[in-house]
Design a binder for these strands. Structure first.
Lengths: 244, 244
DNA sequence: ACGAGTATACTTGTATACAAGTATTATAGT
DNA sequence: ACTATAATACTTGTATACAAGTATACTCGT
């Protein structure tokens, strides 16, 4: 069983009806992005299967998924971990900027009332998540917020891009939220302000505001990148000390 | 063996070192895009495995791939074929427009001499392909042309998007080239002119020309869409008559 | 001591087996 | 004739088995 080991990074309640393969993918993704599995490591299907007490079938499935997300590179012998460097995180946000800009241009051609209503709901959920200091829930709603915007235009290939970037983004946001959800309140309020701005832009169909919010979101990320970077550094130092 | 049946749509020489799963994916993709497998059809792993004389493992792999490409929808029971409607083809070109615009902005910040050289080589290959009326080779080089542009900026997530859209685009171009490679010479010369324009834009770093070439490329596609559409209609009519 | 070649222990890709669940069909009862 | 229920045939997800190929390590010869 996959649940033998206790310390999983990915919230189990989000995996209610996920297959073993998806579970493994989610967990491995978190371990790679958090730096718990270092870049350059070679993963073997057999070893992973033994580690997670499952057969190779779901492991293979998971590795295919992670390879699609650019987190590992499937080679002739073994899957080598690529991981997320600062560059890659910037790049994934490039993509989000790109598609959200595109989506906005589509969105303003139609009635946005329905989307705005949905986004407002999610916004309020995020407020509750802050109130109860639930970092995971906050991250989930944050991602859902952007997903809602993107899916609203019903564009199959934009959706495809989102589907491929979402898991990495989700894990990344999840980790950085957990890291300092309780400390940096000013960060959170900035994020909330920014989401308000998104809603404003879509509701008023104001291109200027949209650009502003997209840009600010990017700045927010910069901070998160630094945090993750630091945490990875800390982890690897801790490992080194362990070895001594 | 996969090669028992003789009439494959996908060029076998492009599959030299592909696994069985990839082969099946390529073939199924062609059959779906060409309309040979109609939208709405439900595919079963067992039936496909029997049809292609392989086990379920590579079939599963292929279905996962096609599902990532939005060509099928994996449901609880069976994989239902989504196929390519006119809308989807437009959407995939939306994405190409989006990422090629992005790539161009990155590209002009650096030295483009190397890319231009590569593109020119491919351009000449395309000319040879026309000379010898090799539609498949032409399609291959056409796709490679755009791939070369996109990969030149070394952006992992833009590359990821390309990797996910490429197969569908390749199949689509392949089919439309085969359809009227020998008839519509004016079409081909227009395509070649357009590719020249691409090279000009990148070499001169001229945004105006780039926009022009991207736009024209889009117009070219419009024709192809109509052709594919007609061919699918013809196919389905032929099938109906067969039934009578 | 060192290099060539072989044996071994790994790797992936594919095939098969099994289990749990779902749709369909047939049958029995009214 | 029609409905409800049960049997059956088919579905996927996971586990296991096997084959072909590759890297490592070891042994043997010089």
């Amino acid at each position: 069983m996959l649940n033998d080991s206790k310390d999983f990074l990915y919230p189990e309640k989000w995996l209610s009806k996920a297959s073993t393969g998806e579970r493994v993918a989610c967990e491995l993704r978190m371990r790679i992005i958090s730096g718990l599995i270092e870049s350059g490591t070679t993963l073997s299907e057999n070893k992973l299967a033994a580690e997670y007490n499952v057969s190779r079938s779901p492991i293979r499935e998971a590795l295919k998924v992670l390879s699609n997300e650019n987190l590992i590179r499937l080679e002739r012998m073994g899957a080598v971990v690529v991981g997320l460097t600062e560059k890659e995180i910037e790049e994934i946000y490039d993509v989000r900027l790109l598609i959200e800009t595109f989506v906005f241009e589509r969105l303003v051609k139609n009635d946005t009332a329905h989307v705005v209503r949905e986004l407002t709901k999610i916004f309020e959920m995020m407020q509750i998540a802050i109130k109860y200091k639930d970092a995971d829930e906050f991250a989930l709603q944050d991602v859902l917020f952007h997903e809602t915007i993107i899916r609203s235009i019903d564009h199959s290939y934009i959706t495809m891009i989102w589907n491929n970037t979402k898991p990495v983004m989700e894990s990344f946001i999840l980790l950085s939220m957990r890291m300092h959800f309780n400390e940096k309140y000013d960060d959170l309020s900035r994020i909330m302000k920014n989401h308000e701005l998104y809603i404003d832009a879509i509701s008023s169909k104001n291109r200027e505001i949209m650009i502003q919010s997209l840009h600010q979101n990017f700045d927010d990320v910069q901070g998160k990148v630094d945090d993750l970077w630091m945490s990875q550094q800390m982890l690897s130092k801790a490992r080194e000390q362990e070895k001594e």
